[in-house]
Nucleic acid binder design. Structure first.
Length: 229
DNA sequence: GCGACAG
DNA sequence: ATCTTGTCGC
């Protein structure tokens, strides 16, 4: 069994190291990446994928996949301990290191302010943004139906991030600081990576690769030379 | 004690 | 997250 109390203590400890201001080191990045994980065989294997996209073209130029045994079960609030090992393995395989990374999950919009996007951003020492598809904690004004509607996500009087209607008739995105970036920049860069879908391109590709979606399999068929594993 | 709860 | 067909709406 795992000691959840010590893991929570570790989060509170590391949360103090998260940088909530811009340390981007670029005006226009060359590469922006997306990171996500999927599971194989009843969840016994965690498959992490990191997709490197060109900017501003947003074309998939590289991807790496890492498969590692799943050690920790899914426990709300402790997701990073389940996913970071695999994500780090994929990260180390990269030929191109992105200047900015979108992680599927919360950044500081977390009970102890260390969601997977912040935790991984800290471990990899890379500017990171948390792009989640649902809420973990915090409160916000009900959004309208209007695409582009934006609300602040707050908890205990503390600003955590944004709730944003990225596309009409779709559930909103929860965007928060991961590491080394400001809340405003996080929102700006997510917006700059949208291409008409609910999810920004880096996240969309990472999800397609990690979960072997048809879109990725079709891309592979058209780019046999870029096939790995 | 009860309800909520990223992926 | 994952298992899965059809179906409703733009």
């Amino acid at each position: 069994m795992i000691n959840t109390a010590s893991l929570r203590a570790e989060q509170s400890d590391k949360a103090r190291l998260i940088v909530r201001d811009d340390q981007l080191g670029f005006t226009e990045p060359d590469w922006i990446a997306g990171a996500d994980v999927g599971f194989e065989q009843d969840g016994t294997i965690t498959r992490a994928a990191i997709a490197i996209l060109s900017y501003p073209g947003l074309d998939l130029v590289e991807y790496q996949i890492a498969r590692v045994p799943t050690n920790i079960p899914y426990i709300p609030g402790l997701l990073s301990f389940r996913e970071c090992p695999a994500l780090l393995a994929a990260w180390q395989k990269l030929t191109i290191k992105p200047q900015l990374l979108f992680v599927d999950g919360q950044g500081i919009a977390h009970p102890r302010r260390l969601g997977v996007a912040s935790h991984f951003g800290l471990l990899a020492d890379v500017p990171a943004i948390g792009v989640a598809k649902s809420r973990l904690c915090g409160q916000h004004r009900p959004l309208t139906e209007a695409p582009g509607d934006l609300a602040e996500l707050t908890d205990k009087n503390e600003f955590l991030g944004w709730v944003w209607n990225s596309k009409a008739r779709c559930k909103p995105l929860y965007i928060s600081v991961g590491h080394r970036i400001s809340p405003d920049s996080a929102l700006t860069w997510v917006k700059r990576c949208m291409r008409g879908y609910r999810l920004p391109e880096p996240t969309r590709w990472a999800d397609a690769i990690a979960s072997r979606r048809p879109a990725f399999l079709r891309w592979l068929a058209e780019h046999p030379e870029k096939s790995i594993d």
